[in-house]
């Protein structure tokens, strides 16, 4: 067994044991924190496909995170007000059912990613970073100034949405649900990474000419990866909105894009479990440092700087060594 596999298993074990322990000890807030980490991890896994595997440094993934969140907010707020979304040409009602909300979140963020990706992927390097940032900002300002769904105030959903057979208001049950989603996403991602598509995507990052010479269009490869990546991040956005029972434009802000990227870096770029470990450490830091000083961002910044400068492979890279090729 490779060391990275052991680390991955330990990570999953910690992620299961800590909330269960908290449940036994009746500390529901720790379960909430763990749920937050799991949801951020899903967002990071989504971005990691574009960023790690595809080398597409997107500084606009908050757009998909927020679109997923708004999919939940809009559907649930219509359902709670008993007002249909539209009556013509056909009736669309709001819903409080998670599976339907997830589907809508995934489809709408995938469509957004397809459109943004189709335009942005014409550029590369710094231009790509900046154009994704620009699209993110566009959607952010749109959400703030569009009055129909609360503008900057956002949308409040009073009761968490339902999932068949579960009481989602119970923290441990909602955690379990999110954890299952994470596991499914991780499993799917490991399949993608080792599929012909995943390998082609990775080699398009390392050597686009070689990919082109075997008759694969790197643009299309990247577009598919970007769309998938946006869809997964959108799904996590819907979960995040449900965790908070609230959605607002802050989910769309560029700092959010930066934070999702930070999870990946802390854990390890292009590592399957990188974002998972990264999100866990981030949440832990936020709470430990946030308790130490009002100025905890200084320490967070310093730590991040140290990781970027001296521990390039992130935590997994430092623990497992460079067994997996990545550059």
């Amino acid at each position: 067994m490779r060391r990275e596999h052991i680390i991955n298993l330990v990570t999953l074990a910690v992620l299961v044991v800590v909330p269960l322990g908290a449940w036994v000890l009746d500390e529901p807030f720790i379960i909430t924190l763990a749920t937050r980490a799991v949801i951020f991890a899903i967002a990071g896994v989504g971005l990691n496909l574009a960023l790690g595997q595809g080398g597409l440094v997107s500084l606009g993934h908050a757009a998909f995170f927020g679109i997923g969140g708004y999919a939940m907010g809009i559907l649930a707020s219509h359902a709670q007000a008993y007002a249909p979304l539209m009556e013509w040409p056909f009736l669309i009602e709001g819903t409080k059912s998670m599976p339907i909300i997830w589907l809508v979140a995934v489809v709408s963020s995938a469509l957004a990613a397809l459109a943004i990706g189709a335009l942005s992927l014409r550029t590369s390097g710094v231009y790509f970073i900046m154009i994704t940032l620009a699209f993110g900002q566009m959607i952010y300002y749109f959400a703030i100034s569009w009055p129909a769904y609360g503008g900057e105030d956002g949308l409040v959903v009073y009761v968490r949405n339902g999932f068949p057979g579960l009481n989602t208001l119970d923290p441990i049950q909602f955690f379990g649900l999110c954890f299952c989603v994470l596991c499914i996403v991780l499993w799917a991602m490991s399949r993608v990474q080792n599929s012909a598509f995943g390998l082609a995507l990775a080699s398009a990052r390392q050597n686009p000419v070689r990919v082109q010479s075997v008759g694969i269009d790197p643009y299309r490869l990247r577009l598919v990866a970007f769309t998938l990546s946006g869809a997964i991040t959108g799904l996590s956005g819907a979960l995040f909105a449900d965790l908070n029972r609230f959605v607002s434009p802050t989910m769309l802000s560029w700092q959010m894009s930066g934070e999702i990227m930070v999870f990946i870096i802390i854990g390890g770029v292009a590592r399957l479990f990188g974002p998972v470990i990264g999100a866990m450490i981030f949440i832990l830091l936020e709470h430990v440092l946030g308790g130490v000083s009002e100025f905890w961002h200084i320490y967070l910044g310093a730590l991040l700087l140290m990781i970027v400068l001296f521990a390039k492979g992130g935590v997994i890279g430092a623990l497992a060594g460079r067994e997996v090729a990545h550059d």
């Binding site: 529901p28 937050r36 995040f240």
Partner: peptide, 30 residues
């Protein structure tokens, strides 16, 4: 807003507070 929600959860679930207060901004209050 999401940090405010999280703090509220923490204070209600962990500290078992009876009263909440302090929010400055309308969007966080909502």
């Amino acid at each position: 807003p999401d940090v405010a929600v999280q703090l509220a959860d923490k204070m209600i679930q962990s500290e078992k507070v009876d009263v909440l207060t302090g929010i400055i901004w309308s969007n966080l209050a909502m």
